[in-house]
C-alpha cells in the first residue's frame, strides 16, 4: 500500500524544518521558544511570553509572520492605552461634497499575529478588549461587531522584573492563554553569534515565505486530527486533577480548560515534530507551558523556594 498520507506528513515535517532554519537566519538559539510559539499557532491559540527585555521576542514573532505570510501588528501597552487604541475607532470623515460621515478606522487588532508588549501595563479595561478579541476572534466597537481575519493569534509579553505600575492579569485572562512561554537568556556562544550578526549589519537578514494562510489553516485542522491514545488522555486528566488535589504544594489548581489545552498542545507538538501520533514525551514537554500560569503555589511551596516548574516536575513523576 503506498503511504500517501505518511508522505504528506513527512512533507509537513520538512516544511517545519525549513521554517526553523529560516528563523535561525534571524534568531540565534531559542529553539524551544520557537517550537512552542509554533505549537500555539498550530492550536489556533494565544501565548504569553515571559521574558526580560532585549531577548528578541518582537523580532522573532515578526520573522514568523513574514515566513507565514501573515499580517503582523504590535501594541506597546502603557497605562494610558485605551481600548479604542487597539480595536480601532470611528473617525469623522468629510467627503468631496462636504458631506461628513463616520468611518471605522481599524486598530492593530485587525492583523493575524498581534504582539502585545508588556500586557500587564495596560489597564484592565484595555485588557478586557483584548480578551474579547482573543477568545471570540471579534471586536466590538459601539454597537457594531467586527469579525477578525483568521488566523488570529495574540502573543503577549510580560516583564517579570518591573512590577511597579502594572495591572497583573486576572486568572480568568491568563487561563485564556494556551501557553506561557519562558524566554531565557541565550548561552554565551549564542550571544557571541548574535553580537557578530547584528553589530555588523544594520538590517536583519531577509527570509523566504513558506506558508500561505490557507496552508496554515489546513495545518491547524491536521493538528486537531493527530490521534492520541486513551491511556495518554487519562494521564493528562490525571495530571490536571493532581494540580487540584495536591493542596500541600498548590493553592489553586488548573481548570478543565488546561486538560483540553494540554491534549491539544501535545497534538500540535507531535505535528510540528513530524509525528503522526502523540507520545508521552509530547505531554511531558507541553505540560510546563500549559500548566505553569494556571497553578498558584501554596505558601509552603513558595517558602521552600519552589517554582511552578518544580511542582509540575514533581506531579509528572507521580503519574
Amino acid at each position: 500500500m503506498p503511504a500517501v498520507h505518511l508522505q504528506q506528513v513527512h512533507n509537513i515535517k520538512n516544511m517545519f524544518t525549513n521554517l526553523r532554519t529560516e528563523i535561525g537566519k534571524v534568531i540565534v538559539g531559542q529553539d524551544e521558544v520557537v517550537n512552542q510559539i509554533l505549537v500555539a499557532i498550530m492550536c489556533d491559540a494565544n501565548a504569553l511570553l515571559e521574558s526580560y527585555p532585549g531577548l528578541g521576542k518582537t523580532l522573532m514573532i515578526k520573522t514568523l509572520s513574514e515566513i507565514m505570510d501573515l499580517k503582523f501588528a504590535r501594541i506597546q501597552s502603557t497605562p494610558d492605552l485605551m481600548p479604542s487604541d487597539i480595536t480601532g475607532t470611528y473617525i469623522l470623515e468629510e467627503k468631496k461634497g462636504g458631506e461628513k460621515q463616520f468611518r471605522f478606522q481599524q486598530g492593530p487588532l485587525f492583523a493575524n499575529i498581534v504582539l502585545t508588549d508588556e500586557i500587564n501595563r495596560a489597564t484592565p479595561k484595555t485588557q478586557s478588549a483584548l480578551l474579547e478579541a482573543m477568545q471570540e476572534k471579534q471586536v466590538t466597537v459601539g454597537n457594531t461587531t467586527f469579525k477578525l481575519d483568521l488566523p488570529f493569534f495574540v502573543l503577549a509579553t510580560q516583564n517579570p522584573i518591573d512590577q511597579e505600575g502594572t495591572y497583573p492579569l486576572p486568572e480568568a485572562q491568563t487561563d485564556r492563554f494556551l501557553l506561557k512561554i519562558k524566554v531565557d537568556y541565550p548561552s554565551e556562544k549564542d550571544e557571541l553569534e548574535i553580537v557578530d550578526k547584528y553589530a555588523t549589519h544594520t538590517a536583519p537578514p531577509k527570509v523566504k515565505k513558506f506558508m500561505s494562510k490557507d496552508s496554515l489553516l489546513n495545518l491547524q485542522k491536521y493538528a486537531r486530527q493527530v490521534p492520541i491514545s486513551e491511556d495518554l488522555r487519562k494521564k493528562v486528566v490525571s495530571l490536571v486533577n493532581k494540580t487540584r488535589s495536591d493542596k500541600d504544594l498548590i493553592e489553586y489548581g488548573a481548570s478543565p480548560r488546561a486538560s483540553i489545552g494540554l491534549v491539544l498542545a501535545s497534538k500540535a507538538h507531535a505535528l510540528v515534530n513530524g509525528r503522526t501520533y502523540v507520545s508521552m514525551d509530547d505531554v511531558k514537554k507541553m505540560s510546563y507551558p500549559v500548566l505553569r500560569h494556571r497553578i498558584i503555589l501554596s505558601f509552603k511551596a513558595e517558602r521552600e523556594g519552589r517554582t511552578t516548574d518544580d511542582v509540575i516536575t514533581q506531579l509528572l513523576q507521580k503519574l
Partner: peptide, 27 residues
C-alpha cells in the same frame, strides 16, 4: 509502544492523520 496503543484506540477512525499513523505503524 505509543503508536500501537494509539492505533488500537483509533482503529475505526479515518481522519487524515489517523490514516498517516496507520501507514507509519505498518512500516
Amino acid at each position: 509502544r505509543d503508536i500501537l496503543r494509539t492505533a488500537r484506540d483509533c482503529e475505526d477512525e479515518t481522519d487524515f492523520m489517523v490514516l498517516a499513523m496507520f501507514e507509519e505503524l505498518i512500516q
